[in-house]
């Protein structure tokens, strides 16, 4: 709850009140990168505010299940949440654009679109009816295509492929003739090991190493076409945010910006370490999906992504803005990544 107590006598603001917030997240407690990113955001807010705003973090299932984070912050029972927008696609089909869509923007481009290209304003408009203020608060960088016990050499190998792949990526696989399966993060390992599924995508080397998937699958495929640069979100209850003094409101927003940058830096640093360990120490075979397969998946994705942006007038504007940015970014990518 939002309790108010007398603050410690530490520092200049001796008699200022301490405000306590709760933050619920979609990540298991202590989950590397994502969960620790949420915890980092909470401690940043505490430090920047000199202890005036204290945020207590709850992992998935600790206070509420992962997929209830949106409802929880919206209702105001907690003040803040940390998750990814594509989890709310059942409520808001266009939400996926603010985390990641198949063959969409990469991490750098997501930041460009959200912070400077008008994306954040559209995102705020989308969440406003729910009393929610969204902010980008992290990015996993490009993910991996996943762990496979079956080689993918042609489009035909996708037919009947039983794969753990949630969300839009799963829908793309389905349209390509595969079988997307709903399996929670904690159950992927045994499903792979027992052969209930042929493949599973999770995140990238940093998280995948810690989950030990190399013990259960032979091949590690790239690139993560289904999530080319997933943005994580912080959501704040509008009334809770507006009840803060102006400087604390700015501190919350600034802390999110720092956390957004910091998580991407962490993934950039840890992914290459982890990939090295996977290959050198555990002898994992890293493979690239054939271009033919990627092209096929991309053509399916384009149509599906367009469908996500048709629900209503706002969805159409979001899709138009995203598509426009992507076209421009593609031209720049050819130039900028030629080095």
């Amino acid at each position: 709850g939002q309790k108010q107590e007398c603050g410690d006598s530490a520092g200049a603001s001796a008699q200022q009140e301490t405000i306590k917030w709760n933050m619920v997240t979609t990540w298991p407690p202590g989950f590397q990168g994502l969960g620790t990113g949420a915890e980092h955001l909470a401690s940043l807010i505490g430090e920047l505010s000199n202890g005036r705003l204290k945020v207590k973090v709850f992992g998935a299932g600790e206070l509420v299940p992962a997929l209830q984070v949106f409802d929880e912050v919206s209702s105001g029972s907690v003040q803040m949440g940390h998750g990814a927008a594509y989890y709310w696609k059942g409520k808001l089909p266009a939400a996926s654009f603010f985390s990641s869509v198949p063959f969409g923007l990469n991490a750098q481009e997501m930041n460009g679109w959200l912070l400077k290209g008008g994306g954040l304003e559209l995102w705020q408009e989308l969440y406003a009816p729910f009393n929610l203020v969204p902010m980008p608060a992290g990015n996993t960088d490009v993910q991996m295509a996943g762990w496979f016990n079956k080689e993918i050499n042609s489009i035909d190998d996708l037919k009947g492929l039983k794969m753990r792949i949630p969300g839009l990526g799963g829908e793309v696989l389905k349209r390509a003739g595969g079988n997307p399966e709903l399996i929670a993060g904690g159950e992927i390992f045994s499903a792979l090991e027992l052969g209930r599924i042929d493949a599973a995508e999770f995140v990238g080397p940093y998280n995948d190493l810690a989950f030990g998937f190399y013990k259960a699958a032979k091949y590690y495929y790239y690139p993560g076409w289904q999530e080319p640069g997933t943005t994580l979100e912080a959501i704040v209850n509008k009334q809770a945010l507006e009840s803060l003094p102006q400087d604390l409101q700015e501190i919350v927003k600034t802390a999110c910006l720092i956390a957004n940058l910091d998580m991407l830096a962490e993934y950039t640093e840890k992914n290459n370490q982890a990939l090295n360990i996977l290959v050198e120490k555990h002898g994992v075979q890293v493979k690239r999906l054939p271009q033919e397969v990627l092209d096929h998946l991309e053509s399916i994705s384009e149509k599906l992504v367009e469908e996500q942006g048709q629900a209503n007038e706002l969805s159409k504007r979001i899709y138009a803005s995203y598509k426009d940015f992507k076209q421009k970014a593609n031209a720049w990518k050819v130039v900028s990544q030629s080095l």
Partner: peptide, 19 residues
């Protein structure tokens, strides 16, 4: 109450394709 009425208001459906 508030969760059910919110869900009703926005016509919430399953987050899974074909759910």
């Amino acid at each position: 109450w508030s969760y059910v009425s919110l869900s009703w208001r926005i016509g919430e459906v399953s987050a899974e394709a074909g759910g």
